[in-house]
């Protein structure tokens, strides 16, 4: 065991360290992308609300100008589409970050011993230790925590971001409906917005189908009222959406800091404590 773990440790440590620094790096890029998403969502909502208000607005001296309201509406619609595009771009970035974080959290183990089969080494490490299931039989990687604990902590952080991504995804579909109220357009945008969680995440696909159903109902209503008048969300709801984007309730900063502290303690002891 001692020999094995001595052979096992350096590669495992390097791998774990890399995985953590990946997660940390993507976390900081997440925060800049999500700030960008918030600001474009704010502009989008403002343009949307203004668009609704154009009819009752006082234009003063401008009122005599030809088609001023029509032009203002058109302009605001174009703005909405631009901001929606920006929001979706930021969202796509966020998806990428979360995907990379997820794969980093899953690739902490250096070796994988499939049941009875040959040992699979899934990083570019030359040395292979036989009979290793990847967690070194539960020995501490650095000083105290075994591999399983590292993986648990990493997946805890990643799941926070996954939850938050789901919120952003829900809001993305809402914003799409806001800007493109008719069914065809919603479909085309939603096709672009593939679910980040793959097909195995049932909850997310069920949300997708439910929103599709909803938009079908909406177009039915729209067909009845003969026009683009769909059930538009209230001002308050939009405010809640923006606050949700701002607050990122599922990303618990205190807990992330705590985990970071645990890890750095591990590391600093590990630097001098490894045999």
């Amino acid at each position: 065991m001692a020999v094995e773990s001595r052979l096992w440790r350096p590669a495992a440590q390097r791998n774990v360290r890399n995985a953590w620094s990946y997660i940390q790096g993507h976390r900081s890029s997440w925060s800049s992308a999500s700030a960008a998403a918030l600001s474009s969502a704010t502009s989008l909502v403002n343009a949307y609300l203004l668009h609704g208000d154009v009819e009752t607005m006082e234009f003063g001296v401008l009122a005599d100008m030809e088609d001023i309201k029509e032009k203002a509406r058109k302009k605001l619609l174009i703005n909405q589409r631009t901001y929606l595009r920006l929001y979706l771009n930021s969202y796509e970035e966020l998806v990428q970050f979360v995907l990379q974080m997820t794969s980093a959290a899953k690739s902490m183990k250096t070796y994988l011993n499939s049941s009875g089969g040959p040992l699979i080494n899934f990083t570019n490490v030359e040395a292979i230790v036989d009979g290793d299931s990847g967690d070194g039989g539960g020995v501490p990687v650095f000083s105290n925590l075994p591999m399983a604990a590292h993986e648990l902590l990493a997946s805890e952080i990643v799941s926070m971001f996954q939850k938050e991504l789901k919120v952003k995804w829900l809001l993305a579909s809402e914003f799409c409906k806001l800007v493109y109220p008719t069914l065809e357009e919603v479909y085309s945008v939603q096709k672009e917005l593939s679910s980040p969680f793959g097909s195995e995440d049932m909850s997310c696909t069920s949300i997708l189908s439910s929103t599709e159903q909803e938009s079908k109902e909406i177009t039915k209503e729209g067909a009845n009222t003969m026009g683009h008048e769909v059930k538009s969300p209230k001002r308050e709801t939009l405010q809640v959406y923006l606050t949700a984007l701002l607050a990122e309730v599922y990303i618990i900063k205190d807990r992330i800091e705590e985990i970071g502290k645990i890890y750095s303690e591990e590391m600093s002891v590990g630097l001098f404590g490894t045999p």
């Binding site: 829900l170 308050e236 405010q239 809640v240």
Partner: peptide, 27 residues
């Protein structure tokens, strides 16, 4: 915005599945 946030009917699409209506005002 707190009074807006405590009203569950304002949550639109977020009110369905997630515990947002509880967590957001708390945050």
């Amino acid at each position: 915005r707190l009074p807006v946030l405590v009203a569950v009917e304002n949550y639109g699409v977020l009110g369905n599945e997630l515990s947002m209506a509880r967590d957001l005002p708390a945050a």
